[in-house]
Amino acid sequence: MLRLATLWTAGVPAVAPAFSPGPSRYSSVTEAITLVVLLTEFAMLRAGLSRSQVRLYAFQSFAVSVLAVFVAANNGIGELYAVAILAFVLKVVVVPAILTRLLRDAYVGLVASHRLRVATMVLIAIVVSVLAFIVIKQLPIRSPSLPTATMGIACAVILVSFLLVILRSDVVSQAVGTFSLGNGIDVANFIIAAGLPLILGVVLLFDLLVAAVVFGLLIRAHHGRARTLSTETLEQLRG
C-alpha cells in the first residue's frame, strides 16, 4: 500500500533505467536464422504431407545458405560464399526437385505416419533441445565466427532430426530427417570450422549428394515393392 501511495504521489521516473545494449546486430540476426533452422525442424515433426516435408527441407537449407552468406560476409571468408552457393544449388534446388519427382511418381500424397500425437512430439522435442543447450553450455566452445549460443541450437537441430527419424514412420520423413541432420551439422560446421570450409564443406555437400542418390534409389525400390511409403511394412526381419 505504501508502495502504491508513493508511486501515485511521486509521479513518473524521468527515464527508463539504462539497459545493457544487448547483443550486436550481427549476432542477433545470425542467432535468429539458426533458430529458424531449428523451428523448421520442429515443423517437419508435424508436417503431414510428404510434399510439404520436402518443401520444409528446402526452406531449411535456404536458411542455412543465408547463414553461410552472413558468416562469410562478416568474417571475410571467401570460400564460404562458394559453400553457400553450392548448398543453395544442391539442397534448395536439386535434392528437393529429385525428391518431389520421386513423390510424383509414387502417387502418395498424405502420409499420416506420426507415431505419437503432435503435441506430445513437440514437447519431447523441446525437452531434447533444452538438453542439448545444457550440454553445449558446459563445453568451452569459442567460436570465432558466430555467437556461441548457436552451437546449442545446432545441436538441438541434430537431436530433433533424430526424433524425426524415430517418431515418423514414412520413407520421406526419414529421408528428410537424415538430410536435415546434415543441415544441423552444417551449422555446427559454420560455428566451429568456418576457417576451414573447404574440407568440411566438401564433406557435407558430398554427404548430401550421395545420400540423395542412395535414398532416391531406395525410395524407388521400396515403393516398387511395397506400394506404399510407410515403413510399417518393413518388419519381416526381426531377432
Binding site: 541434430i158 533424430f162 560446421n189 564433406v203 531406395l218 525400390a221 518393413l234 526381419l237
Partner: peptide
C-alpha cells in the same frame, strides 16, 4: 527383405555417421 535390410542399414548408418561427423568437428 533385401530392400528392407538396406533401408534400415542406410538410415541407421547415416544417422551414426552424422554423429561421427559431429564428433570429428
Amino acid at each position: 527383405t533385401a530392400t528392407e535390410a538396406a533401408w534400415k542399414y542406410v538410415v541407421i548408418a547415416s544417422m551414426g555417421l552424422g554423429i561421427a561427423l559431429f564428433g570429428t568437428i
